[in-house]
Design a protein around this nucleic acid. Sequence first.
DNA 1: TTGACTTGTTTAATCGATTAAACAAAATTA
DNA 2: TAATTTTGTTTAATCGATTAAACAAGTCAA
Lengths: 347, 347
Amino acid sequence: MIKKICLKDIAEKVGVSTALVSYVLNNKKEGRIKKSVAQRIREVAMELNYHTNQIAKSLKTSKTFTIGLIVADISNPFSSSLARIIEDEADKNNYTVIFGSSDESLLRSNKLVDTFLNRQVDGLIIAPGEDAASQIFSLRQQRIPFVLVDRYFPDIKTNYVALDNYKASCSAIQHLVNCGFKRIGMISLNTPLFNIQERKRGYIDALQNSGINFDKRRLIEIDYDNDKMETSVKNAINILLAPGHPIDALLFATNAIATHGLRHINALQIKVPESLALATFDKTDALDLFYAPITYINQPLQEMGRLATKILLEAIEGNTSITQLNLPAELVIRSSTVMDKKYLPAI
Amino acid sequence: MIKKICLKDIAEKVGVSTALVSYVLNNKKEGRIKKSVAQRIREVAMELNYHTNQIAKSLKTSKTFTIGLIVADISNPFSSSLARIIEDEADKNNYTVIFGSSDESLLRSNKLVDTFLNRQVDGLIIAPGEDAASQIFSLRQQRIPFVLVDRYFPDIKTNYVALDNYKASCSAIQHLVNCGFKRIGMISLNTPLFNIQERKRGYIDALQNSGINFDKRRLIEIDYDNDKMETSVKNAINILLAPGHPIDALLFATNAIATHGLRHINALQIKVPESLALATFDKTDALDLFYAPITYINQPLQEMGRLATKILLEAIEGNTSITQLNLPAELVIRSSTVMDKKYLPAI
DNA sequence: TTGACTTGTTTAATCGATTAAACAAAATTA
DNA sequence: TAATTTTGTTTAATCGATTAAACAAGTCAA
């Protein structure tokens, strides 16, 4: 690599001290510096194509203008959409984002946090895995500025921006009930993650509030393993549809479950919504391409990303108050849950 | 934030110099250091929960173990999948990834490169926009280690890892011809981007090699504008299907075009493949959920990410040779291009 | 004329590591 | 015993910025 230009090079060329160069380029001591000198310094900086060495600057100022983003998997559309929003929001404030995927593993997550802290990130945005409570607790104790997104631990007092999962789940089930479905199933995850538990609670409560008995055979919680998920979802659907008491409507608890589920239902050539109504958490492009576009619970990603970043930056600035947000979801109703197409919004 | 522990704290507690602590913690001067002292230093480091300040280390060693990734849009599944692979590959070598989305804008891209270079990234992986040639040229002149992915400029001698777009396109068209389709259309982008041009060239050549006249009315190149893309794609499809000489098969040049196109075709309730066969570049989850799963050109993303990272790290290590790879694509044939009753829509 | 400001700039310490070179004490060789 | 080597550790410069404090020279008021 070619030699880098530093403050000293400019200082020497102009014939002043590096201090003066620094003051000029940072617009400090405005009134005190002779205009002609300041201009000359700026000229030479331009001419030599000077660029600040942020590493040196960060060392001195102990501020890196970097935030660390830890998601389960950056290739998941939920995560990458969020990442994009956070990137834009950070950029507006001159922050850069470094990211890492934890794969829901505490080991990886710990490693990422360590790496990011070693790099002196100013703060963290984390979508924590189910076993990350201790880690989050430790971050809080160390007074590292951070915000949780999407998932959080109700017992630990931290900043978070998440969905009101309970209400979202209720509204989807309520809608299915209103549409006349009675044997409503759900495929969820076998995890203590609070947001997933809330979705379950909403499902059960909404059923019971509608006078429908909660039949626990209709709630299948599959194991949280990316590699086996396709098989697990297939099996779950087969069980739920088995002759005897087949379900007439199904709610998927996550976009990953939905993607596998829809693929299987497509292959089985089940008529949606006539034989089975479908609804899911999370929006993906895929939902539009099913022949009966899928009703879904739309998370306000833009708001989540924007607020998470905003709260983090405020924490970095020294704000020590705790902000906990459960944003409302929007139920987007489409033909996968509505028999009579004339009630659908025009595409 | 709580006071950070530094080398000096350990040195003072043990009663040695910071140099010795540094040697021990970096396993240097192995033979020379008294074992008892080394052990004591390690103990105290552990006890105080010491973590290296990478910023300080980077300043001294001028190595950040960071690579910058610039894609068009991290929320595009192609980009985020690639990002994930690069992340994993980088992680194996103890590198961290910082990322940014250029939105195909040279201005943003330049800003990102500047930001990343100011942060002293060791190298860059870039999916350049159509007007990025000058920027890429400048990076080359500055001897910054970098690798282009997905897109590249044939006239600039740089490292790149991309698809053999020409062959990929040919193989898709050849397949459509073999299946008996004769009026084959393509929706592509109006851009000088070489990879897109190659896809066009493959389309035209493959048609002509099959004895089919290239009818330029069947190739529609829409403008490259994310916001207007949905409308452009709809219009293009309407034109291609207009009574008179409707096409009987259609190739989408990118996943974004495909997503919009499939949505529209779904809404129009066109029978695929009976009335219209469909194939596309790039794989997405969405392709499986169309009632007739879509034939697609599968890019070897894993290989692309892996090789791009490998080549970059070698360049960072000082390797000055140039590697240019056009990887072969795989045509995944499914029911959207194959007439077969069992794939009829289940409506 | 002298002390007190202003203006414009430099000096030098500092951030937290790394590392060549210097140094001291112990061990070995001559 | 003196010279040399080995072992174990410290000193001090350095990376490239920032910034409080010092300094010099000019202006002004009393």
